[in-house]
Design a protein around this nucleic acid. Structure first.
Lengths: 110, 110
DNA sequence: GCCCTAAATTCCTCTTTCGGCATATACTCA
DNA sequence: TGAGTATATGCCGAAAGAGGAATTTAGGGC
């Protein structure tokens, strides 16, 4: 764990990355892409949203460098470009699980 | 890296945790608390904001279980309660650094 | 060229959230 | 009890972000 002093600009960049991951639908999209590339249509079905909405979120994820876009014929395929997001999600899941377990214990001991 | 299927509710919880970390000021506060507990006044000075604003963010961080509050006399001290946030920040920093380095190389090779 | 399908873009509205300001609460000390 | 300091809270206005609906752009096949 590094201990650098972070500049104001660095903090903003980091915050932006977290903000990108702060929407359930975007997380859902990323989660769906774990098993490989998918087209916009496939993703739209997978996450149960509208096509324009999915396209908008895909654009944000791509602009941030998290996703990569590849066009094949008439359809666009999106792939994970930065797999560090999965470590992030796993870390958060682990932390939340632990917290919930602790809360459950406290509740049980009442 | 786990490969579980995440439920809609789990995605929302994870997204909420990321949202918590998506504000520069909150990151600043957490960063300042790396070296140990601080009072609200100290934090207000450290992050260069107003006291009410800092209090509000502290409350959110505490409600999420990221910070712990301890009152001593008239002043309140806040401490890191979930250090996994630092791994998160470090992972993001690493990813951003790599991306910037790559972008710089691409730019240099033009 | 024309039609069909896939994806992206624009406009709009609604909700959330940030920060400032004023105020309230709570603790200490005289 | 009264003054002073530390922290929390409530209210407001401004800005950002999400999703819906309609439309546009672009490719493929006839």
């Amino acid at each position: 764990m590094s201990n650098k002093k972070l500049s104001r600009e660095a903090l903003i960049l980091v915050a932006e990355r977290f903000k990108l991951l702060s929407e359930p639908l975007r997380l859902h999209i990323l989660h769906a892409l774990r098993d490989g590339p998918m087209s916009v249509n496939e993703l739209t079905a997978a996450v149960n949203s509208s096509q324009p909405n999915v396209s908008k979120h895909l654009k944000m994820l791509q602009a941030a460098g998290v996703l990569k876009r590849e066009q094949s014929g008439n359809t666009a395929f999106y792939t994970i470009a930065d797999s560090s997001i999965f470590s992030l999600c796993d870390t958060v899941c682990g932390s939340l699980e632990e917290k919930l377990r602790n809360d459950a214990e406290i509740f049980a001991s009442i």
